[in-house]
């Protein structure tokens, strides 16, 4: 446990010194928010103020891009000599990985606050109690944890850090093909079934509902089940992959 915290501290320090990680964590969220609201927002008519609809979606997109960097950092550790040093210091594989995931959570917490601040600055008006706001943040961070464990497993599966980067595209695809940016009903029929039932949609709907104070029932159960399911399966796979990589 204490090893995992030391590893998390290390991972945070390394991302603070890596220009790409900083860019992904701080610049990208701001850029995406601006792009969606000002560039695409004018063309999207969904009956409500688009910034209110899309802000939760951008939160989710930033969360997955942030979580995806875990794949790269894990992969870099495995490719270099440092993993041998950690192992010969008797640091367990799960502690190394948990350090990366913890750092990812903290990074994403900061960029989430940044996205919310930017959204508020350009007209996002949530109607939410403090409790609902905290709940939305909680669901988002649970989603980040699940996506980070998924990315960690992905980073163990591929050998090159460049390949690990593709975890981002994989995760982003799930965001785009969900109700994060446009309602599922506006999509082609063949895509609707997938879009409505894949993890990103219930997570987005739950966060959006909590932030905007929707009165209709939220798919909270589905969102939590997806996050826990993906998180636990990824965690297990990561442990197995780590053992296999270091056998």
């Amino acid at each position: 446990m204490s090893d995992a915290l030391i590893m998390a501290g290390r991972s945070l320090r390394l991302s603070a010194r890596s220009p790409e990680a900083l860019l992904t964590a701080l610049m990208l969220p701001v850029m995406l928010m601006v792009v969606f609201v000002y560039l695409f927002g004018g063309a999207v008519d969904i009956g409500t103020k688009y910034v209110n609809y899309v802000a939760p979606g951008v939160l989710l997109l930033c969360a997955v891009t942030g979580a995806a960097t875990t794949a790269v950092t894990v992969c870099q550790d495995m490719a270099g000599g440092i993993i041998d040093r950690f192992r010969s210091l008797d640091v367990s594989g799960p502690a190394v990985l948990a350090g990366h995931v913890t750092a990812s959570l903290l990074r994403n917490f900061v960029s989430t606050l940044l996205v919310i601040a930017v959204a508020l600055g350009i007209g996002f008006r949530p109607h939410s109690s403090v409790g609902a706001f905290a709940a939305a943040l909680g669901v988002l961070l649970l989603f980040v944890a699940a996506a980070s464990w998924f990315a960690a497993a992905f980073g163990l599966l591929v050998r090159a850090p460049e390949a690990a980067n593709s975890a981002m595209f994989f995760l982003m695809f799930f965001c785009y093909a969900s109700s994060a940016f446009v309602p599922v009903r506006t999509m082609p029929t063949w895509l609707r079934g997938f879009a409505a039932h894949q993890p990103a949609t219930p997570v987005t709907e739950t966060i959006r509902g909590l932030l905007l104070g929707h009165s209709h029932p939220l798919p909270l159960g589905a969102a939590l089940a997806w996050c826990l399911g993906i998180g636990l399966v990824s965690m297990g796979s990561a442990a197995v992959l780590f053992r296999r990589r270091t056998a």
Partner: peptide
């Protein structure tokens, strides 16, 4: 024990 391999086991950015 300690082990020093052929590739430096250090963090470049620290």
């Amino acid at each position: 024990i300690s082990l020093t391999g052929q590739f430096a086991a250090l963090d470049e950015m620290q």
